[in-house]
Write a protein that binds this DNA or RNA. Sequence first.
RNA 1: GUGGGUGUAGCUCAAUGGUGGAGCAUUGGACUGUGGCUCCAAGGGCUGAGGGUUCAAAUCCCUUCACCCACCCCA
Length: 417
Amino acid sequence: MDNRFQSIRGFNDIFFPESYKLQSIEDTAVRYFNLYNFREIRTPLLEKTDLFVRSIGTSTDIVEKEMYTFEDSGGESLSLRPEGTASAVRAYLEHSIDKQDPVQKWFYRGPMFRHERPQKGRFRQFYQAGCESLGIADPFIDVEIIKLADTIINALPVKGITIRINSIGCPECRPGYIKVLKSFLGTIKESLCDDCKRRIDTNPLRVLDCKKQSCIAATADAPKTTDYLCGDCSSHFNTVKTGLDGLRLSFLIDPRLVRGLDYYSRTVFEFTAEDAGAQNAVLAGGRYDYLVELFGGTHTPAIGFAMGIERIAGLIDTPSTQGPDVFIIPLTEESKQKALAVALLLRQAGRTCETGFGEKTLKSMMRRADKLQSFSVAIIGNDELKEGYVTLKRLSDGHQEKIKDADIVNAVQNIKA
RNA sequence: GUGGGUGUAGCUCAAUGGUGGAGCAUUGGACUGUGGCUCCAAGGGCUGAGGGUUCAAAUCCCUUCACCCACCCCA
């Protein structure tokens, strides 16, 4: 056991029923993405490292220490994607989609990779489903996107979700705010933790995000981004808020919400769960109005979000599952061919079927049928073979009858009713 | 990368430094073509790995690995 291969840390095998839970979360998300007319885009898991460095930001933790980066045989630096937006924007420009129709609504789902220490709700390979709306600056798009996120979350059996929103301004107004914030932080520097002291210079916004009680207390009176927004950003944010109010969507304005990626601007939002451990952000996103031009395109406003599939799964009970409609029991070697024919017939009619091939005795097959929570069993032995019927038995009450071969599909229908 | 916790059967867990057990699960039988319930039995372990102390180590010490939780940060 000790010498056998082991998966690498933070890369997990996911078995049924956990896999089924993840699948149903993704399916729910995809259903609503489609309902909102988003179209799927599939991008590579591997990209040139620089794509992520330039979009996410050099001083972010993701780029500094969390990317799976290596050189391929040609000496080029490649990285497993730590998030989905950079690839989408790259594809948008690479295929000149902005020239055909700058307005695009895309969704994606799949694994992301970050080299962090695993803990509750955090893995090195994890799954996200997300969407991107490109080309529209209208704040009502923000409202619509947040409503989409809310709709997906509400379609799932999760409780205790809080929607937090904030605006972090634009290149017009943010520098001014950061200046004010920096000088404020300078005055309280001594009461901040060591990390935050360092952040004053490297990334002052992040000081507001510190979870240490002492830092939270020290920054209680810190200037708020929303008080320093320029006219355009301010009215954009106001429209978002009234739009959400108009949908009767309750949300919290969280001045400490700054997001960890450099490309965000204006509206940022996060859905947090009460019961999720320390990693409580289950869905997050925001505007990134300047990323397309940062990549060399024309100015293209955009907004998107991503949801953490496993984090949401952590809030959901394991779903109860159903066994097959019919478990087919061939008693003899000669009856196996007919067993297969019956199974195929039932499956064509949409009935889930399991076959008892490989089991030795009737008892062992019955036990297996029971263990799989089969609704019924169809026994096929030499008698049945000779006289052209199957013995159909309902396991819940033991009711059993002989069914002529031609009537099997109907009989299964009737026995379930 | 840092800190704390935990490693014993497939799973959940017992075992004062003195021959490693139980429940559940698995397989078979009681019951020859009828599951669940019950009873009986069987299989399954280098106690995560390596070293040390000791007459004697699952137990004490050191090292290492893995997992969990938290920090940093993030979905």
